[in-house]
Nucleic acid binder design. Structure first.
Length: 373
RNA sequence: GGGUAGGUGGCGGAGUGGUCAAUCGCACCUGACUGUAAAUCAGGCGACUUCGGUCUACGGGGGUUCGAAUCCCUCCCUGCCCA
């Protein structure tokens, strides 16, 4: 693929990603806007938190409102009025979170993933080609191949089958991607990512990566979980998988993660991240707080459940050095706790924005660390 | 004044002789959350405890019974209806 066009000044860890909706510089973090909304936060506030790109979900938008309806509005950027880069996840994660974790809700065949829609119970087939078609209709800047992620306690045989299927599906995605671009050339075409599977089996990960690199993608994702069943970070797997990706390609750690997991994954070679944690945990009352003066190589943050009773009379802001909406407005922890306990949506929103700010700030520091080294 | 329904844990509300320290909901407390089936979910929620139990509890007081939140008497209080 045309790396020289896509990354005009990329060197090493610092890669410039040019898209039809602006350029991105690695490393960066993208919050998840699954149904074309970062839950509860409008585009302007997302960007003011320091966020440059977001992730939408092919499967969920396919179910509702439907890709053609979004096309009717001029694409997902216009639909949701976010005019910066957007990456769409393929629906592969829903193969994992819906089908593999809840076998009643669908099954996977060679043709594609069959979902029983949680909206109305109807059956929906999502093929690799269909996933790519939907992503084109959404008009996103970065696309992901449909893959078959498995829980990490899956048997080796099944993991191997999932890897083979992921590779075949990736080839079909690539073919459909090129076919569409040939028919309808674009000034700045979207990027396409393959996703590396293989669970906790190093050789399967390596085999998957090699096969995907042979097919050729703009970037490669770390698929499924980067943690073992006890929640331990799979250091070796995460490192070796990154190494199996060419330096000139983007390395996208899908679904990672906590602030410390991001720092760790970045150190191991990954340079794009997305996760629900900052927004979901914010909505659920948890704030990420920087331990000021501690470098990001150390114990640089802690998380507090602001809805806890111990904050009810706390007059201090979440973080006096933070520039987020809540902190710069001077809202006290006691006030935010009051909002959370009273289920006033402003509380959830303020914490989600604060956490996005925390993530954006963290990624800026990681970026700075490249320049310093 | 007469009649009637009722008083149960912070609130609402089950229970109508033993398996009741008392279903359930709300509130409250704690925790979890990693390509969002998540503004969700899990646990706790009388006191003390060596975690085996012990004690105090269903408006107050008295009684029946081996045993009472549940049955009887009495007092207090509340809602509704009639005067």
């Amino acid at each position: 693929m045309h790396k020289e066009i896509l990354f005009p000044s990329s060197t090493g860890r610092r890669k410039i990603v040019r898209t039809a909706h602006g350029t991105l510089e690695t490393p960066f973090f993208m919050p998840d806007a699954t149904m074309a909304a970062v839950r509860g936060i409008e585009p302007q506030a997302i960007h003011e938190a320091g966020i440059e790109a977001i992730v939408v979900n092919t499967y969920h938008l396919f179910l509702r409102p439907g890709a053609s309806r979004i096309a009717h509005f001029g694409g997902v950027h216009e639909f949701m009025k976010w005019h910066r880069p957007i990456l769409s996840d393929s629906g592969g994660y829903q193969v994992y979170s819906l089908i593999h974790k809840h076998p009643d809700s669908g099954n996977v065949s060679e043709e594609g993933a069959v979902f029983r829609s949680p909206l109305d119970g109807s059956t929906k087939l999502l093929t690799p080609e269909h996933s790519i078609d939907i992503q084109f209709e959404l008009g996103v800047d970065m696309m992901v191949c449909l893959d078959d992620p498995r829980p990490n306690d899956t048997s080796r045989d099944d993991l191997a089958r999932a890897v083979d299927r992921t590779i075949r599906w990736a080839a079909r995605c690539k073919a459909r991607f090129e076919e569409r671009l040939t028919k309808h050339p674009q000034k700045i075409r979207p990027l396409l990512f393959g996703v590396i599977q293989g669970g906790m089996e190093a050789d399967l990960r390596a085999r998957c990566a090699e096969a995907l690199v042979d097919i050729g993608f703009d970037g490669y994702g770390f698929g499924a979980r980067h943690l073992d069943m006890e929640g331990n970070f799979l250091e070796d797997i995460v490192r070796e998988t990154a190494k199996s990706i060419p330096d000139s390609s983007l390395r996208f750690a899908l679904g990672i993660g906590t602030p410390s997991d991001i720092v760790r994954s970045f150190a191991l070679g990954w340079d794009m991240f997305d996760c629900v944690i900052p927004t979901r945990e914010g909505r659920h009352g948890r704030a990420f707080l920087r331990n000021r003066g501690v470098p990001i190589s150390g114990d640089f943050y802690h998380a507090e459940n602001i809805s806890a009773e111990r904050f009810s009379e706390d007059r201090s802001p979440l973080d006096p050095f933070c520039g987020c909406l809540a902190c710069s407005a001077g809202f006290s922890r006691g006030y935010i706790r009051h909002l959370l306990v009273g289920k006033e949506p402003l509380g959830a929103r303020l914490l989600a924005i604060h956490n996005l700010f925390f993530y954006a700030d963290l990624l800026r520091e990681l970026k700075t660390s490249i320049e310093a080294s």
